[in-house]
């Protein structure tokens, strides 16, 4: 059975697109913190734990909220939904923050709420908690977005019938540079049953992943 991408979110710089439509862009925004908070406010996501997340967590959380907003993912059993993400700098952004708390022995106060985010897969945990996703999860690191790696990994999960729906993509933050590309992937048969949405599903493969992610570069 073939799989389709039935929704996607793209955040590049401080611009956010969902299913190909521009959702957020403000020219005067200069920092990641301002951007992500403005996006959170605009989209009226009410989730107080959002403020406790690190940058990678916030970016992944918002991107997944916008991705799954019009998706009935609860129609799948939680243990048959999965999350497979990748990035370049792992959790380096928060690693640097944690390191700052221990650099000076006279002012040595490591913070548990910072340290817990010094793992890239915590953002997967946040997305799973929010959406009740209990199936396969993996965080892969590559120098730049590797569409073959992600398509191969996720297609294999579908072929083993370990997932019926899978969130996958790229989620990268370092300082004020951020980039997110998340796609929701489903089996063709399940797509046919859902009502047509604002976005026409495209086949799930490395080529389409690459096309969707790099559309702004053209």
């Amino acid at each position: 059975m073939r799989q389709f991408i039935t929704a996607y979110t793209l955040i590049d710089g401080f611009k956010c697109m969902v299913n190909g439509r521009l959702l957020f862009y403000q020219e005067n925004i200069l920092t990641f913190a301002d951007f992500i908070k403005a996006l959170y406010k605009q989209e009226q996501v009410n989730y107080p734990k959002f403020y406790k997340m690190d940058a990678l967590g916030k970016l992944g959380f918002i991107a997944s909220e916008l991705l799954l907003r019009n998706k009935d993912i609860k129609s799948y059993p939680p243990e048959l939904t999965g999350v497979v993400l990748s990035n370049s700098s792992s959790s380096l952004d928060t690693d640097i923050a944690h390191n700052e708390t221990i650099r000076n022995r006279e002012h040595y106060f490591p913070s548990p709420s910072v340290f817990v985010y010094t793992l890239p897969n915590i953002v997967i945990g946040e997305i799973c908690i929010r959406n009740g996703i209990k199936g396969e999860n993996a965080f892969l690191v590559s120098e730049s977005f590797n569409s073959e790696l992600i398509a191969g990994y996720v297609t294999d999960l579908f072929s083993r019938e370990l997932v019926k729906g899978c969130l996958c993509g790229w989620i990268e933050v370092l300082g004020n540079r951020c980039e997110a590309f998340l796609a929701w992937v489903e089996n063709q048969a399940d797509v046919a049953e859902t009502k047509p949405g604002p976005f026409n599903p495209v086949p799930f493969d490395a080529e389409h992943l690459k096309l969707l992610k790099n559309q702004n570069d053209r």
Partner: peptide, 11 residues
């Protein structure tokens, strides 16, 4: 082999 997620708490 398989993986799962608790979907409960990050730590």
């Amino acid at each position: 082999g398989a993986t799962t997620n608790d979907a409960n708490h990050i730590s």
